[in-house]
Design a protein around this nucleic acid. Structure first.
Length: 219
DNA sequence: CATAGGATTTGCT
DNA sequence: GCAAATCCTATGC
């Protein structure tokens, strides 16, 4: 799904359509995967994971954040892909409003130039994380189980055929240290070099260091 | 029925 | 670097 467009246009969360390109994902398998919610088996919560592919599995973490998966295996077999980051494409103003104007971005803009630069940089990170992605696109558990193939409310669009295949980087999944041997599986995938990644991949040079390495002033 | 802890983000030190 | 915010799910008695 890397490179695909995720589009949200829901009359229940008005303001117009918003959309972004998926740049980071994680794969979660069935009950054998100790990092997957499916390890609990088929329950009320995990039911969408065991359902038909192409549907959403939206859950709440830490009591306050929504995260969204795309179910990917056949009915009866749990399997899903967590969407961890999107790069905003349209509806950016609405995404900004949903995320709330950050104090840092608001306080920084003394000049036109610096404010627009800061704004562009922070806009790129509006969907840089599984919970940020959901907040920016207005995805809540109301859409748990939603059929993503209907082309309404919330859906996916394939990239244009002329679009070059993204260079993909791989690493272990985030926040699953409790999962024993499953914690180290390299099932996190990202578009190399995207400014919207939730965090760097192992061995990847952080963005701040990249500019220094290219000859920028490292302070 | 009670309780532990989480596929995160943010702000402060 | 660290802890708080906050609620639902799963699990155990």
């Amino acid at each position: 799904m890397l490179g695909c467009l995720l589009i949200s246009d829901d009359s229940a969360t008005p303001g117009g359509p918003t959309g972004g390109v998926i740049v980071e994902t994680e794969a979660y398998a069935g009950p054998e995967d100790q990092a997957s919610h499916a390890r609990a088996g088929l329950t009320r919560r995990t039911a969408p994971m065991f359902g038909a592919p192409g549907h959403a599995y939206v859950y709440l973490v830490y009591g306050m954040h929504s995260c969204m998966n795309v179910v990917g295996d056949q009915p009866g077999r749990a399997g899903a892909v967590l969407l961890r980051a999107v790069e905003p494409v349209f509806g950016v103003e609405l995404m900004r409003a949903r995320r709330g104007v950050s104090v840092a971005a608001r306080a920084s803009g003394s000049t036109q130039a610096s404010s627009s630069v800061r704004s562009a940089a922070s806009d790129a990170r509006l969907g840089a994380g599984p919970a940020r992605l959901c907040q920016a696109l207005g995805v809540t558990r109301r859409l748990d189980g939603h059929d993503l193939t209907l082309g309404a409310q919330l859906w996916l669009a394939a990239p244009h055929v002329a679009e070059p295949l993204p260079h993909v980087v791989v690493g272990p999944r985030i926040g699953v240290a409790y999962a024993g041997e499953w914690a180290g599986r390299p099932w996190r995938f990202g578009v190399a070099g995207s400014p919207a990644l939730s965090r760097p991949f192992p061995g990847e040079m952080p963005a701040a260091r990249v500019s220094a390495a290219r000859g920028g002033n490292a302070r």
